[in-house]
Each structure stands twice: as C-alpha cells, then as structure tokens.
C-alpha cells in the first residue's frame, strides 16, 4: 500500500445466501486503486461487477474480507460514520434508476447536499449543477420533474448528481447503458474531463470493451464468475 492508494480490497468475498442455496457474488478480490486513477471493470452480465462496486461503496456488507478507502476500513464504521463518509467521498452512479420521480431535476441533483454534514452554500452547488446539465446536454431541464424525463435523460441527471458534492471517488455502474452513441460519447468525454480536472478516482463498470477504450482507462480489470481473472495496464 503506497500513499497514493485510494481504494484497496482484501480477500473481498460476497456470497448471497437464500435458504439453502448460495450464489457467488464476488470471490476473493484483491485490488488496489490509486488516487486519480481511471479504472475500468469489464465483465459479462452476472460476473459480479455490481456486487464489487456496491461493496466498494459500502452499499452491501461482505461475507469475508475488507475494503479500505483512504486507509479506513469502511465496514468498521457505524451507520452514521459510513453514511457521512459515503456522502462526502463517494459519488455513486447506480445501475438501477435512482431519481425521485416527483422531485425536479435540480432537486434530485442537490439531494447529496441535503444530507451533507458540512455547511454548504447552495447557490454555488446550483451553479455547478447547471454546468453539469449543460455539459450532459440537458440545458434548461432544472425545473422539469424526474418523471417527465426519458430513461436516458434520467440516467444523465443521476450522473450529474454523482459529481455534485465534489467527491474524491466516483463509482459508476454501467453509466451509459441506456444512451445512444452520440450521447454516450458526450458523457464519456465529460467523465474524462472532470476526472482530470478534479483528480477523481474513477471506477467504471461496463460490459463493453469499446467504452473502456473510449474512456482511456488506465487500468482495466476483467471479471468472470465473481473473480478477477485479468488485469491490463494501459497507461
């Protein structure tokens, strides 16, 4: 572990249990992600990508092993601490639709600010949100309600929300899954740009090699049946 290590997993294992049956989510994952690194995680459906990302963000608890972020074992934190930690450090782009339908686009984006423990100047974040919307091709959408948006538009709002609180880490689960090629390109360009500008540690989960290439990922992990079977360092 060097001083640039941002995320580290040790023997990370998640077994889903239902009645007598056991399903492997992820199995014995050991990886280290550095600060400012753009990482891609590639794998087929059911490979365990969402499980791994959820473990990294503390959305689920591992069966075995641990996750260190900024050298903190996140599963040793209590609910309050972990929530605060997640709010402050992690921007999550969920694979599943995740907007609150009856809130406007702006309100949805500002949600992480509501639960922030630090005092925040809302104006500043509104400006930031507007900038993101513009970059993501949703200029003027602030006051639209989430339920009025198309699937792809909702997805982009969720993307803007992940960045709003200036987190150090972005965990993106198939962020461009329901976007057309042009829009996808736009989003990926935005990712790369903001990742560089704000020195984000970026973990992007996808099943498409193309996206990994387009993002100019520095490191790519290949997953299958809950395990990482290959690692490719590009830059």
């Amino acid at each position: 572990m060097n001083n640039r290590t941002k995320i580290e997993t040790k023997n990370l294992t998640k077994i889903y249990e239902r009645e007598e049956e056991k399903f492997i989510g992820v199995y014995d994952i050991n990886l280290t992600i550095n600060e400012g690194e753009f990482v891609g995680i590639l794998g087929h459906s059911g490979a365990g990508k969402t499980t791994l990302l959820s473990l990294m963000g503390g959305l689920i608890k591992p069966t075995k092993g641990s996750v260190y972020i900024n050298n903190v074992d996140i599963f040793k934190l209590d609910d309050n601490e972990l929530s605060h930690f997640r709010n402050k450090n992690i921007g999550f782009i969920f694979q599943y639709s995740s907007l609150i339908p009856n809130f406007t686009v702006m309100e949805n984006i500002l949600l992480p600010i509501v639960f922030s423990k630090e005092k925040k100047n809302l104006r500043e974040y509104e400006t930031r949100a507007k900038y993101f919307l513009e970059r993501l091709g949703l200029k003027g959408y602030e006051d639209k309600y989430a339920y009025e948006l198309s699937g792809g538009e909702q997805r982009r709002v969720a993307i803007a929300r992940a960045f709003i609180n200036k987190p150090e880490i972005i965990l993106a689960d198939e962020p461009t899954a329901d976007l057309d090629e042009d829009t996808e390109l736009k989003v990926l360009k935005f990712f790369r740009e903001i990742q560089r500008k704000e020195n984000l540690t970026f973990v992007l989960v996808t099943h498409s090699t193309e996206i990994v290439d387009l993002c100019l990922c520095e490191t790519v992990y290949y997953m299958k049946k809950g395990r990482i079977y290959d690692k490719k360092i590009i830059a």
């Binding site: 963000g57 959305l59 609910d79 309050n80 972990l82 929530s83 605060h84 997640r86 709010n87 402050k88 992690i90 999550f92 969920f94 995740s98 907007l99 609150i100 949600l111 992480p112 509501v114 639960f115 922030s116 929300r161 609180n165």
Partner: peptide, 15 residues
C-alpha cells in the same frame, strides 16, 4: 427504493 436512493447518496438511517 426511495430510502435506498437516499441512503446510497449518504443519508444515514437517522436522516
């Protein structure tokens, strides 16, 4: 689901 979203964005159980 909504509770899941809020918690995913950093709301604690208390929040």
């Amino acid at each position: 689901k909504e509770i899941g979203i809020l918690k995913g964005l950093g709301a604690s159980n208390k929040d």
